[in-house]
Simulated scan of single mutants.
Amino acid sequence: MCSKAVILAPVFNRILARFPQQLNFCFAYGSAVKKQLTNDSKDNMIDLIFCVDNSQKWHELNMKQNPSHYSSLKYLGHNFVSKFQENFGAKIYFNTLVPLEGVIVKYGVISTKDSITDLLEWSDLYLAGRLHKPVEILKPTSNSEMQTAVQLNLQSAVHSALLILPESFTEYEFYYTLSNLSYSGDFRMIFGEKKNKVENIVKPQLNSFRQLYTPFLISLSDYVDFPGLKEGNDENSDSLSIVCSQDINPLARLHHLNQLPRWPQKALTRLWNRGSLRQDTEDVLRAIAYDPDCNEIVVKCLNSIVWKSSVSQSVKGIATAGLLKSVQYSSRKVTKMLG
């Protein structure tokens, strides 16, 4: 992730011009931004994430510039909003159903420090999960720590997906597993999201996924074989049938386990010790590497992180959106799910 110039669509330029410009990093994601299989609705909401160095200052400026974006929490002041953002849920503050420049926008604000923590440690797997998929970078970061965190987040996703997958799998299954890391434990997938959401994301963007992850897969050539990368294959349809293989010996699994972020490793240790600290993380990871159910154990621990953050962030969203917008937003989600 570098700080090279980005050519933006006119609508993104106009949208960003409506906000305070103190942004460290900004990207757009979701069905209105990236092609999806069932993306035929013209009124899909544009999802944005703003990473800011100073949340208090940014909200202060934004409340003066865009007071209508906020729920009644704005009356408690920008300091309260900033603390509410940073101390609850996944440490992100969303304003939703905002009409801007002829489109509907939902934007989340998160501090740079909390962004880096989630990307490196997967404390919430919230921002990190969104950046496992191709996104539209609207403002690249010039912060070297943030740049490194974005890359390490992708690397962690590769190690996690390989731990979950069997010895043989298709390239499509690999990208599906990557994308599903932050969805499989999300309680909203039970009711509120289409059951084939991940498939809708992955299939139309196979080339984008390949471009995003090829450097990491090449560096792991001792552990996994991706024939499509060697052949320079560039056709989406082929990724559905290209068979890849990986080393699933305990030492290979231990390598991947050792590369997992801090919070998944903590979750694995807690699960293995059944809540009591009897073995340290190093011993636990070695034991799990030799366990035939290693993949299921990893899935369970990742799901526990996602479940907790998705529930707390959704509850937080009721306050940040306000009751009326919360009902409207939920109705849009249900309509989309059933449509």
Rank of each mutant, 00 (worst) to 15 (best):
A32C: 06
A319G: 03
S326P: 06
N54E: 12
K91W: 04
E235H: 11
V224Q: 10
P134D: 04
S160H: 08
V52L: 09
Y329K: 11
V198Y: 02
E193R: 11
Q279I: 01
L76W: 12
P215A: 03
G30N: 09
M337G: 04
I201F: 01
S310E: 04
Q36H: 12
S179F: 00
I110L: 08
S82E: 11
H69Y: 07
F174G: 02
L125Y: 00
I305E: 02
L138R: 09
F187W: 10
V315Y: 12
V298A: 01
L178R: 03
I116A: 03
D291T: 13
G185P: 02
A9R: 14
V150C: 14
L48A: 06
S219P: 00
G185Y: 02
D238A: 13
Q85A: 07
I248P: 00
S326W: 05
V33W: 05
F80G: 06
S241R: 11
Y213P: 07
W58G: 05
T281G: 00
W272G: 02
Y29T: 02
M63H: 09
R188I: 05
T281A: 09
L73W: 03
L37V: 09
K203T: 15
K308F: 11
L240G: 03
D283E: 14
G102V: 08
A17W: 07
E282L: 09
L277N: 10
N13Q: 13
L268G: 07
S55N: 09
T117S: 12
L23R: 15
W307N: 10
A252H: 02
V334W: 12
H159F: 08
S219D: 15
K203N: 01
H255N: 13
N249A: 14
G232H: 05
E193M: 13
V243C: 06
G89E: 07
K113Q: 13
K197S: 06
F94Q: 05
H59E: 04
I242G: 00
K139Q: 14
I242W: 07
S219F: 04
Q36T: 14
N87F: 13
K74Y: 04
E173Y: 00
K308P: 02
A319Q: 14
I164F: 06
Q259C: 06
N258E: 14
S239N: 08
P20K: 04
P261L: 08
T269L: 07
V98S: 07
L8F: 06
C301T: 13
A32N: 09
L61S: 08
K266W: 00
K194I: 12
D47V: 08
N303K: 14
P20I: 06
Q246V: 01
P10Q: 05
C301Y: 09
K195D: 11
Y126D: 01
M63K: 10
K300N: 10
C26W: 00
R130L: 07
Q85V: 11
S219W: 02
P204T: 08
G275Y: 02
V224L: 07
N153T: 02
T117Q: 15
L100W: 00
Q211V: 13
W263D: 03
R210M: 11
S219A: 15
Q279N: 12
R130Y: 05
A149M: 10
I116K: 04
Q259V: 01
V52D: 05
